[in-house]
Structure formats: structure tokens, C-alpha cells
Amino acid sequence: GSKLPPGWEKRMSRSSGRVYYFNHITNASQWERPSG
């Protein structure tokens, strides 16, 4: 298991139950796992 880039964390969408990734530094969110 590799770590996520700085700022990123795994989140669960309440509406759909899907996992997404959220960056608390930039407030960005995306479905794809961030690389870096």
C-alpha cells in the first residue's frame, strides 16, 4: 500500500456510498486515486 500525496485523504460519499479522495489543502476532490 502506497501513501497518498500530501494533503489527500480517502473519504466516503454519503449520498452514493462511493469512496473518493479529498485534498484538505486545495479543497480538491476526485474519484480517481491521486498520484504523486
Results as ranks from 00 to 15, higher is better:
residue 1 G to F: 04
residue 1 G to Y: 03
residue 1 G to P: 12
residue 1 G to W: 00
residue 1 G to V: 11
residue 1 G to M: 08
residue 2 S to P: 13
residue 2 S to I: 13
residue 2 S to R: 11
residue 2 S to M: 11
residue 2 S to D: 15
residue 3 K to I: 10
residue 3 K to V: 13
residue 3 K to G: 14
residue 3 K to Y: 13
residue 4 L to M: 05
residue 4 L to K: 08
residue 4 L to E: 04
residue 4 L to R: 02
residue 4 L to Q: 02
residue 4 L to G: 03
residue 5 P to Q: 03
residue 5 P to L: 04
residue 5 P to K: 02
residue 6 P to N: 08
residue 6 P to L: 09
residue 6 P to V: 09
residue 6 P to I: 08
residue 7 G to Q: 04
residue 8 W to L: 00
residue 8 W to K: 00
residue 8 W to A: 01
residue 8 W to T: 01
residue 8 W to R: 00
residue 9 E to I: 10
residue 9 E to F: 05
residue 9 E to M: 06
residue 9 E to P: 00
residue 9 E to D: 05
residue 9 E to K: 05
residue 9 E to G: 06
residue 9 E to S: 09
residue 9 E to H: 10
residue 10 K to R: 13
residue 10 K to V: 15
residue 12 M to C: 14
residue 12 M to S: 07
residue 12 M to T: 13
residue 12 M to F: 15
residue 12 M to Q: 10
residue 12 M to A: 08
residue 12 M to E: 09
residue 12 M to P: 05
residue 12 M to N: 08
residue 13 S to P: 01
residue 14 R to D: 10
residue 14 R to S: 12
residue 14 R to G: 10
residue 14 R to K: 14
residue 14 R to H: 11
residue 14 R to A: 13
residue 14 R to N: 10
residue 14 R to I: 12
residue 14 R to F: 06
residue 15 S to D: 11
residue 15 S to Q: 11
residue 15 S to N: 11
residue 15 S to P: 09
residue 15 S to C: 15
residue 15 S to F: 08
residue 16 S to A: 09
residue 16 S to P: 05
residue 16 S to L: 10
residue 16 S to G: 09
residue 16 S to M: 09
residue 16 S to T: 14
residue 16 S to Q: 09
residue 16 S to Y: 07
residue 17 G to N: 10
residue 17 G to V: 03
residue 18 R to W: 05
residue 18 R to L: 10
residue 18 R to G: 07
residue 19 V to W: 12
residue 19 V to R: 03
residue 19 V to T: 10
residue 19 V to H: 09
residue 19 V to C: 15
residue 20 Y to E: 06
residue 20 Y to M: 01
residue 20 Y to T: 00
residue 21 Y to W: 07
residue 21 Y to S: 00
residue 21 Y to R: 00
residue 21 Y to G: 00
residue 21 Y to F: 06
residue 22 F to N: 01
residue 22 F to M: 02
residue 22 F to Q: 02
residue 23 N to E: 02
residue 23 N to H: 04
residue 23 N to Q: 02
residue 23 N to Y: 02
residue 24 H to Q: 10
residue 24 H to R: 13
residue 24 H to S: 14
residue 24 H to M: 12
residue 24 H to A: 12
residue 24 H to I: 15
residue 24 H to F: 14
residue 25 I to N: 08
residue 25 I to R: 07
residue 25 I to A: 09
residue 25 I to Y: 11
residue 26 T to K: 03
residue 26 T to Q: 04
residue 26 T to P: 00
residue 26 T to H: 04
residue 26 T to L: 04
residue 26 T to S: 07
residue 26 T to Y: 04
residue 26 T to E: 04
residue 27 N to H: 14
residue 28 A to S: 11
residue 28 A to I: 15
residue 29 S to W: 15
residue 29 S to L: 13
residue 29 S to E: 07
residue 29 S to R: 14
residue 29 S to V: 15
residue 30 Q to S: 07
residue 30 Q to E: 03
residue 31 W to R: 08
residue 31 W to K: 08
residue 31 W to V: 08
residue 31 W to Q: 05
residue 31 W to N: 06
residue 32 E to Y: 07
residue 32 E to R: 05
residue 32 E to M: 06
residue 32 E to L: 06
residue 32 E to D: 09
residue 32 E to G: 07
residue 32 E to I: 05
residue 32 E to Q: 10
residue 32 E to T: 08
residue 33 R to C: 09
residue 33 R to L: 12
residue 33 R to D: 12
residue 33 R to M: 11
residue 33 R to N: 10
residue 33 R to Y: 14
residue 33 R to V: 13
residue 34 P to D: 01
residue 34 P to Y: 01
residue 34 P to N: 01
residue 34 P to M: 02
residue 35 S to H: 09
residue 35 S to N: 12
residue 35 S to L: 13
residue 35 S to K: 09
residue 35 S to E: 13
residue 36 G to Y: 14
residue 36 G to H: 11
residue 36 G to V: 13
